[in-house]
Each structure stands twice: as C-alpha cells, then as structure tokens.
Design a binder for these strands. Sequence first.
DNA 1: TATTGTTATACTCTATAACTATA
DNA 2: TATAGTTATAGAGTATAACAATA
Lengths: 153, 153
Amino acid sequence: MLASVSPSAVDDPAAVERAAFDALAEMSFAVQDLLGRVADRYGLSLTQLRLLGILRDREPSMLALARRLNLEKSSASGLVDRAERRGLVTRRPGVQDRRTVHVVLTAAGRALVEEAEKALIVPSAELLTALGPPQRRQLTRLLRLVLDRPAPP
Amino acid sequence: MLASVSPSAVDDPAAVERAAFDALAEMSFAVQDLLGRVADRYGLSLTQLRLLGILRDREPSMLALARRLNLEKSSASGLVDRAERRGLVTRRPGVQDRRTVHVVLTAAGRALVEEAEKALIVPSAELLTALGPPQRRQLTRLLRLVLDRPAPP
DNA sequence: TATTGTTATACTCTATAACTATA
DNA sequence: TATAGTTATAGAGTATAACAATA
C-alpha cells in the first residue's frame, strides 16, 4: 500500500549519479579553498604549493614537471621562474641529456613545504570532524576505487 | 600470535585521517580538471562556468555574487565585465537600493550554461563507473555529512 | 558616515608561437 | 630533423587602494 508507481528520485540511477557528482563537485571547491587558504598563510598560491609538494620527493625535468601539472612547458617554466626568484627552487642542468633542466627544492623550499604540510593537519581534521574513523576509512575506500581505476583505453 | 605490538598504519587514527584527506585532495584536482575540460569545450573558463551556474537560478547583487564566489567585489566586477563583453550576462540597476547592480543571465548565457550542464553528464558518469548505485549513495551520504555540517562558531 | 560598485594598477597563471641549444 | 627549454606576448583571474554615487 506504500508502493510507488514511478521510481522515486533517490532510486532513479541517473539521480543517484547526479547526486554523487554534485557532492564531489561541491567537495572539490571546499577542498581547493582549504588548500588555498593554507598556501596563502605561507605567502604561496595553491599552484606554488602544489609545485613544492611535487618536488618534495622528486627532481623532475621541466617537461616531466609540466606533464605532472598538466601544463604547457612554457607555463611550467614561468612557474619555476617565480619560485626560483623567491629562493624556493633551483634549476640544475641535466648531465646525460644536456638539453634538459631539472628542478630541485632549495633548503628554504623544503622547509616551507614541510611547514605547510604540517599546517594542513588542523584544517583537514576540522573538515572531517563529522566522520568517525570507520566512516573515514569507508570514504577513503570509495574515493580510491574511483581514483585508482586504471585509465580507460 | 599475529597480534601487533604497535598500531598498524591503517589503524592509527591520524593515518586514517591523513589517508581520507589525501584522497579528497586528489579527487578535488580530478574533479576540477573534469569541470575545466567541459568548460573549455564551450570556450569558458571554470570560473566563468561557475558564474553562469550561480546565475542559473539567481539574480544576485554584485556584492552577493562576490561573497558566493569568495571574491573581492572588484574581482567579481571584472569577472562580470568579461562575461558581459561576451554577451552572456547583463547588469541591471537595482530599484530599491539604487547603489546596487544585479547580474542576470542573457538568453545566450542561459542556453550556454544549460548545454554545458548536459555536457557534464557523460564525463561525470565516466568518472563514477567504478562504483555501483549502492556505493554511489554511500559516497554521497558521507560527503553530505562533511559538507552539510553546520559551520563551527 | 557607511555601503555598493567601478576603476587603476600590479601580480600570478596560463597558452601560443618563435627561438636556441642539443640530440 | 626532433626534442627540451626559454622568451615574447596576450589574456584571464585576483587583490589592494582610491574613487563616485547612493543610503
């Protein structure tokens, strides 16, 4: 007697998908805002913080860096210019292939990215307060399923 | 006899939190990339698409718009300038308070944002293929718990 | 006086195109 | 010739500060 004759909104697969993507989109803005505010506290843009984060455990060539950041090589070059001017990274000429340039954190750059990393702990904890540890694990599992799916052909 | 003497990585609450935030951060970049690619297909930046999306069912004052986008009022003004130059929005003088200006979609702007909205369906479905409907509902529920939490004092 | 919006200015981020040096 | 990187140029996006109009 409570049967429904048409699929309710929450049971319609398209609506389920839409709701999930909407939540992901909203979350993406919230997370970018959070990251941006922390970067700002250290006088960095989110892009600069991302750059330093990549260099934490890598010394990529300019081209590899551009690919990882999804940028044109000239954009990566400019990004590195600005970070270099601030003493956060240096360029190191490649030895095998002398056309290449590798981008490396300076001591100051490393110190800054490690501080910023620590500064992320409080706001990220704040963001997640609504979830207990089991829910956090569940969220991680679901997100990893989406993120770690092998790229489609 | 398989007892561990120290908390394993996956049981340490700090590690659980860290893993969840890392996944959220990575997802945020993936979603922003997806949104940016769709915007690009319509000759829009992600910011312009966001602007049009807000105006879909609102005619906010410049200041309300700035607040919603988390921008300075001068930045919002410039954003609207560029959208107006492309014929996507117009300014309408306020009637009650004649200091205000309301920002309104044009017919062209509305058509564009509706097309872009439709164009989002395919890539967002693609993104979520790894999850079945029950998992999508679960993900939505967890994200909404985080997003809909009342702002802390 | 306070608020709303615009303008002037400056910087970051990004892309395209032309160029240099090396492979 | 092809590839790695830089430079020149242009435009979007953003902020701060000074200003005009209205409240």
